[in-house]
């Protein structure tokens, strides 16, 4: 196998990532000569500098405003507050790194619900629906769901979900998980499954969707994101930790 089949020829990941300046330096070193795969010809041949993305500090030290952190789907802050706390209980901040809120998961879910996914446009939704089927759109499931969480919270602890202690919040979510809460046209446990799955998506999808902020989800998991090639590492015996790359890095390679 010739080395020139490898588009990166990446001898050292560390050389390519200057963490002090929070910038990637793309020095791809790809060999020219007709070996590159079909659609990816082009900009790998140049050195490029990419600015970091997201909400990290600018050089003057001030927090920039993150304009994507506004609600598209949840009109009422009260509902969104419930979502915030519920996602954080499912994926909490701990010593390994940020939890769902810091990763942007609630805004990720809000944006997903505001689009096609919330309206089930890809699903077969024709009736008749049988007894154990869910005739609701995801936007209705999630809105009803967060309101049921708050209702259950008030019933059990006489306060809004967001004001409860962590342990109490967990108890309320367990009520849904165990179907001890009644929901309309859906089992509470089915809603809770959907919520958990949406949280995982928000933690680990590309940051392009608003979650996995600054790729912190991937960093915790030691997942390298969008790398051009792993060919030269395939046979390596040791674990290879890499600074992850996102779709933004990937697309900016080629201008």
């Amino acid at each position: 196998m010739a080395d020139d089949d490898n588009p990166n020829n990446q001898s050292s990941e560390k050389e390519r990532f200057d963490s002090s300046r929070r910038r990637f330096v793309k020095n791809t070193g790809m060999v020219v000569g007709g070996v590159a795969g079909g659609s990816l010809l082009g900009g790998f041949f140049t050195d490029q500098f990419l600015d970091d993305t997201g909400t990290k500090e600018k050089e003057n030290g001030k927090q920039p405003i993150d304009y994507i952190e506004a609600r598209m789907f949840f009109k009422h802050k009260k509902d969104f507050d419930v979502l915030n706390h519920a996602t954080e209980r499912i994926f909490p901040e701990d010593e390994s790194g940020p939890g769902a809120i810091e990763l942007g998961v609630p805004y990720y879910i809000d944006k997903q619900l505001a689009g096609d996914w919330g309206k089930n446009t890809e699903m077969y939704m024709q009736s008749p629906f049988q007894d154990d089927e869910i005739p609701l759109k995801r936007e209705d499931v999630f809105l009803q769901g967060v309101r049921k969480i708050n209702e259950a919270s008030k019933n059990k602890f006489e306060d809004d979900f967001k004001n409860l202690e962590k342990g109490e919040q967990i108890e309320v979510l367990q009520l849904l998980e165990n179907d001890d809460v009644d929901m309309e046209l859906i089992r509470a446990s089915d809603f809770f499954e959907s919520l958990k799955s949406a949280v995982m998506e928000g933690c680990y999808s590309d940051p392009i969707y608003g979650g996995n902020k600054n790729m912190e989800g991937w960093k915790m998991k030691e997942y390298p994101g969008v790398q051009m090639s792993h060919r030269s590492n395939l046979e390596k015996e040791e674990f290879i930790a890499m600074e992850p790359k996102s779709l933004k890095d990937y697309m900016d390679i080629e201008n």
Binding site: G38, S39, L40, E201, Y204, S205, D206, I208, Y209, V226, L247, Y250, M251
Partner: peptide, 12 residues
């Protein structure tokens, strides 16, 4: 075509 696969390494 293969050009439609570009820039789409996107698990979600």
């Amino acid at each position: 075509s293969i050009n439609d696969y570009r820039y789409d390494r996107n698990e979600l």
